[in-house]
């Protein structure tokens, strides 16, 4: 068994899990954070993307034990109270989802790409950056539109803050 201590969405959490436990299993089954989804078993779909020390990773392709000591942000950690994160708000505004299954991973990847690359982002960049996230409903158009809008808005916000 492995003792794993993490900061999840700002809260210090500890659990004792089997060594083979994946991070996504710890988040969902032990911590009850079921916003992070498991869409495939092959590390391809990206529904499980979370931020590990500020970088987007697939939580199904990482052992919980490997993440010991790290700071994890999940989809549950983005909104501040009732106020959605700008990327969440943009997905709602632009209908960036249909069934919603891939949405948590899409949003975590979108926040990561905006954090890394700054904004506003163009369509080509967004599509390239979304290569690790699969959506089977939308055809991606509205997801891309939502990220375009959010990246422009966040760039405006960060300029305003400077």
């Amino acid at each position: 068994m492995a003792k794993v201590s993490l900061t999840v969405n700002g809260k210090a959490l500890t659990a004792e899990v089997e060594d083979r436990t994946l991070l996504v299993q710890l988040l969902r089954d032990v911590f009850g954070l079921t916003g992070t989804h498991v869409g495939c078993d092959t590390s391809q779909c990206g529904a499980c993307v979370i931020h590990l020390d500020g970088r987007a990773v697939k939580s199904c392709t990482l052992l919980a034990a490997q993440a010991d000591g790290a700071a994890v942000t999940t989809i549950e950690g983005l909104a501040v109270g009732d106020e959605l994160h700008p990327v969440q708000a943009a997905f709602r505004e632009h209908h960036g989802l249909q069934c919603g299954f891939c949405t948590p991973g899409m949003i975590m990847s979108a926040v990561d790409m905006i954090n890394r690359l700054g904004g506003p982002l163009d369509e080509e960049t967004i599509r390239h950056e979304l290569e690790g996230n699969i959506c089977r409903c939308t055809g991606y158009h509205n997801i891309v539109k939502a990220i375009e809008a959010a990246s422009a808005q966040m760039a405006g916000l960060s300029q305003a803050a400077e």
């Binding site: 970088r55 987007a56 990773v57 690790g132």
Partner: peptide, 9 residues
């Protein structure tokens, strides 16, 4: 290589 999340690890 792979996609952004894969490249992070």
């Amino acid at each position: 290589v792979g996609d952004p999340a894969v490249r992070h690890l």
